[in-house]
Simulated scan of single mutants.
Amino acid sequence: MNIDALFSVQGRVALVTGGSSGIGRHIATGYATAGAKVYICARTETKVMAAAQAINEATGGTCIGLTADLSTLGGIDALVAQVAARENALHMLVNNAGTMADAPIDDYGEDDWDQVIDLNLKAPFFILQKFLPLLRAGGTAERPASLINIGSVGALKVGPKENYAYQASKSAIHWMAKGLAKRLGRDNITANVIAPGFFESEMTVIASDEMRKMVEAMVPRGRVGTPEDLAGAAIYLASRAGAYVTGSVIPVEGGLSI
């Protein structure tokens, strides 16, 4: 058994939505470092192009930035067209783009609810649907294509914030993976979820040493997550090592949900 080949994503093609920052960028950087060809997308052209360039410089790999608005079906179609014009197959699709809105229950607005549900739950389903032809072309019985939806520890444990739509959307993402896995297995596509805990990003900012100590005290591993923690899980699920894993939620949260 060749262990290097078992965990290899060399030469595979990946798309990471919301890959210009945070969790998506950590995964995209991991894939590029491991030899995959990586596409990342975001709404702001300057931001996504700068991120792709930085990933290329840091890894010596191949990362390509695409501009996309995933809040509409038309925007999703435009993204699919951009990738399909360049690739005949897709091996890894990471649905990472998302948002959060927290407010007291008495003040929680419909606009906030709809925005979170649309981007966190509706968009991942239709992104998958539109990319199915490329994913089917990329999967084989021995080496399936891999769908990875980014869930959250917030769907495993109720936190201190009143972020009702976020909790609902991520809980649904966790369950939806099981239905997708059952259907997509015949197409040689696995469907799994990574449920991250506390990773520093634009959505989760550690504003003080006091806050850092409080967060670290909540985590059995005694620290916040690192890019390597996310990259390792994403590489495993997309490699031959993870080919028999589907319909699973993989918590990457240092034990926070215990």
Rank of each mutant, 00 (worst) to 15 (best):
G61R: 11
R223L: 09
I173P: 04
G138E: 03
G75P: 04
I117Y: 02
G30S: 06
D209E: 15
Q167K: 14
A5C: 12
K213R: 12
G159T: 02
A145P: 03
F131N: 03
A168E: 09
R183T: 15
F126H: 00
R12Y: 08
K213L: 07
S208T: 15
G35F: 11
T29P: 08
T44P: 03
G159M: 03
I194N: 07
R143Y: 09
A195N: 11
G30F: 00
T17E: 06
K157R: 15
T190K: 08
Y164R: 09
V219C: 05
E253G: 06
V219H: 04
S21G: 10
V116D: 03
A36V: 04
D114I: 11
P133R: 10
S8M: 14
P104L: 03
I258L: 08
L6K: 15
I76L: 12
M100K: 06
M49F: 07
R212F: 10
A145Q: 07
S8V: 14
S201N: 13
V38H: 03
Y244E: 09
R86G: 08
D102T: 11
S152M: 06
Q82T: 02
D229T: 01
S21Q: 15
A241C: 13
G159V: 01
M100Y: 05
A243T: 12
G159Y: 00
C41E: 04
S20R: 02
A14Q: 08
G255F: 10
G35M: 12
A103L: 10
A243F: 08
P160Q: 06
R12W: 06
V153P: 01
E210C: 12
Q53Y: 12
S152D: 07
T72D: 13
M100I: 09
A81L: 10
V245D: 04
V193D: 02
G154W: 05
T59Q: 13
A78H: 08
E210V: 14
I23N: 04
G75K: 05
A168G: 12
P196S: 10
G179T: 08
H174N: 14
T46R: 10
S146N: 02
V245Q: 01
T99V: 14
Y108N: 02
E142G: 14
